[in-house]
Design a protein around this nucleic acid. Structure first.
Ligand code: MN
Ligand code: MN
Ligand code: ZN
Ligand code: ZN
Lengths: 136, 136
DNA sequence: CTCTTATTGATAATTATTATTAATAGATAT
DNA sequence: ATATCTATTAATAATAATTATCAATAAGAG
């Protein structure tokens, strides 16, 4: 309950560990494995969405049909609420040997950073700057 | 070269390990780490696509704009070549604080298994059958 | 052929996630 | 209320995938 409650209160698409770090303030005895277990159950039950971004799972309690943007620089995940995009994809897809039940739309690009000094960049830049690296 | 060559010859979206198991037949000295290294370089250079599905990375040498279907039962990944779907998404998205450079469309659902007797089912079913598991 | 640098193989380390299990909490029956 | 049964948890340990390290090797330049 606390886990779902917390997930509903944020729009950051946290990892299991991020959820854990917040929820343990309320339930100090809770363990990371319990958070994982509950997040997985919730997503199997269709109460939350489990996303896979940059090598880790992210969780989202917003079950409305929406899309996501992932910043290639800072890794931030933003919501896009334009259900026509998902609907178009599902309406248009014609596959003889596959029956789709849902679609996931992820945009990759760059978010508008306060380019002066990134203020809420918790993790180091994911940008892969190859300048100066010469290939042969 | 052998890695890229192999990737271009298949449409299975293999994992690094799958690529490794094939390429090592040609280059017995090759190591899994080298395969990972090269796959990552290739994807950074835009020569291949790196997908993230069911907790692991999948690689695809088909750089044409296309979409994917993931079977929730067997994990198989199928291609869909309908560029209008990705184009629609990119054209329609309006985000004030994000500049998209690409979009990834993944359909989830079920592929048409030869349900009489699955003939090329290499890996065990991923299906999560909760029948008989009562929640309280 | 020698020198310099990039890439590899071998392996260790890391990270995220899942599995195990005895203990606990919660519900149910007495 | 107390005993009993059962689902969930905490506390690990284990696993799986991926990345890092680094000495040895291969490739290119001169
Ligand atoms: Mn979201
Ligand atoms: Mn493909
Ligand atoms: Zn950003
Ligand atoms: Zn299937």
């Amino acid at each position: 309950m606390k886990i779902l409650e917390h997930l509903k209160s944020v729009k950051t698409h946290p990892t299991a560990e991020m959820v854990y770090n917040v929820v343990k303030k309320d339930i100090p005895s809770i363990t990371l494995a319990t958070v994982y277990r509950n997040l997985n159950c919730l997503s199997e039950d269709g109460k939350i969405v489990k996303l896979e971004i940059n090598g880790e799972f992210r969780f989202d309690a917003d079950m409305g049909k929406h899309q996501h943007c992932v910043c290639k620089k800072c890794g931030k995940i933003l919501d896009v609420f334009q259900k026509e995009i998902s609907e178009y994809a599902l309406k248009k897809i014609k596959s003889t040997d596959f029956v789709p039940s849902g679609v996931q739309v992820i945009f990759y690009g760059n978010c508008k950073h306060e380019n002066k000094r990134a203020k809420n960049n918790k993790r180091p830049e994911i940008v892969k700057d190859n300048s100066g690296v010469k290939k042969r």
